[in-house]
């Protein structure tokens, strides 16, 4: 119970601070954010957009880890855990895509422009879609678990190509791209242009969203297991 209150406080603080703290050219007070050239007010999305993208990746990672675990131990509970993780991953993937597109409308002038990061998140969306399509087409539980585990591992090894290599080969608009014209050396926007208060809120937001994710995931897979048990009881009479 304590950590739920803790989570509430973190997320409440992040939402309020992230939206209301002003951005000024030379921050003096602790609550002022620095002006990042090329981003201006739009920079604030980092507190909400980046965590969703982060959780998309986490969801995918967890789903793959439990897939591997299933293939080793053949325990259907692992399949349920993998499924619950992927469900959340898909949800956050959609959120990341939508928030990113809305932001892009204001920062770049159009909702979608096939920036490498947009391509990558779109690819993740496709992978999730394919994975759920595969699952829904298989009747037998064992087969569904095995085949979807195999597919998620294959899909997982293609992700580095999207996440790391493609943005570096193709031209990018996204902050932190290799050829971002506003940053001197390329690399993540986090390192060098945010002041400490901005960094603090950013990381608090990451932590808060991750805990939220974990909580939702536990609820998700437990409800899957209960549903399974209930089905079995109903069939047995």
């Amino acid at each position: 119970m304590v950590w739920k209150i803790f989570l509430f406080i973190i997320l409440a603080f992040v939402s309020i601070a992230g939206i209301s703290f002003p951005i000024v050219e030379n921050p003096q007070a602790w609550y002022q954010f620095p002006l990042i050239p090329g981003l201006e007010e739009n920079a604030k999305i980092i507190f909400f957009h980046v965590p969703t993208a982060w959780l998309t990746v986490i969801g995918f990672l967890m789903s793959t880890v439990f897939s591997i675990k299933y293939l080793r131990k053949r325990n259907l509970d692992d399949d349920a855990k993998s499924y619950a993780a992927a469900q959340l991953g898909l949800m956050f993937c959609i959120l990341a895509t939508v928030t990113g597109a809305v932001w892009a409308k204001f920062a770049w002038g159009s909702y979608w422009s096939w920036d490498p990061r947009q391509t990558s998140i779109f690819a993740l969306l496709l992978i999730y879609g394919a994975w759920f399509a595969l699952r829904s087409s298989i009747e037998s539980e064992d087969k569904r678990a095995t085949l979807s585990a195999v597919y998620s591992i294959i899909a997982f090894v293609t992700v580095p190509f999207f996440v790391f290599i493609m943005p570096r080969i193709m031209d990018g608009l996204h902050p932190g791209s290799a050829d971002d014209k506003f940053s001197p050396s390329g690399g993540p926007v986090v390192n060098f242009q945010m002041n400490s208060s901005m960094l603090l809120i950013f990381f608090l937001s990451l932590i808060g969203f991750t805990i939220l994710y974990y909580w939702m995931w536990r609820l998700g897979y437990k409800s899957l297991l209960y549903k399974e048990k209930l089905n079995k009881k109903l069939i047995r009479g």
Binding site: T119, A123, I127, L134, I154, F161, F162, I165, M166, M170
Partner: peptide, 15 residues
């Protein structure tokens, strides 16, 4: 299902 499953896997290759 075949193109649906193949496309995300083949996308890096195609790009």
């Amino acid at each position: 299902l075949y193109p649906v499953l193949s496309f995300p896997i083949l996308l890096p290759l195609i790009l």
